[in-house]
């Protein structure tokens, strides 16, 4: 069992859907998935900030992941969930996703890391924001899993 792990290094991803496309974040970054979507809006904050939400006494900043990925914002519904990240990813925050998916275990070899191209600006710019977020893709049997880097979310809200 253990040996197998060493032979085939693999990573687990917490996947979710946005606009019917599959995305994932490293499961080690995820604290929990919650269905609390009663946000308190923060006026003056960037559009990507959905608002504050209270999860068991701790206030989390919720970001609208749709806007990060270039989709229009949409109303929350029964399937909407927030994915909350662990403290080491950033001060308490989470992202709003359309629908939560399964946990996928993927061989590391099957992940294509996104190589940063030279002409890309180091940060800033609308394009830069979305690009920084993508850390790689992985081909699954029935589609593509786009892997997001949860650590660059907070940096790209402005």
């Amino acid at each position: 069992m253990k040996k197998e792990n060493i032979d085939k290094p693999s990573r687990q991803f917490c996947t979710f859907q946005i606009s019917e496309r599959l995305f994932g974040v490293d499961i080690l970054d995820v604290k929990e998935v919650n269905q609390e979507t009663d946000f308190t809006p923060i006026f003056h904050a960037p559009k990507k900030v959905k608002g504050y939400v209270n999860i068991r006494g701790q206030i989390h900043l919720i970001l609208d992941l749709r806007l990060f990925l270039g989709f229009e914002s949409k109303k929350t519904d029964d399937a909407s969930r927030v994915i909350l990240f662990k403290p080491e990813v950033g001060d308490p925050f989470g992202v709003l996703v359309d629908q939560i998916g399964d946990v996928f275990e993927v061989d590391e070899a099957r992940i294509e890391e996104r190589v940063r191209e030279e002409h890309e600006l180091p940060e800033g710019g609308e394009q830069g924001g979305a690009l920084n977020l993508l850390s790689g893709v992985c081909k699954l049997e029935n589609g593509l899993l786009v892997i997001l880097n949860s650590r660059s979310l907070l940096k790209n809200i402005w």
Partner: peptide
């Protein structure tokens, strides 16, 4: 009083956030 999240701390009209009796956050 809970401090504002660092990402939105620059907003000058808020000094913090709190959780109200019904569990909702208020600024």
């Amino acid at each position: 009083v809970k401090p504002m999240h660092p990402a939105v701390k620059s907003l000058s009209i808020y000094s913090g956030a709190t959780i109200m009796g019904d569990g909702k956050v208020a600024l």
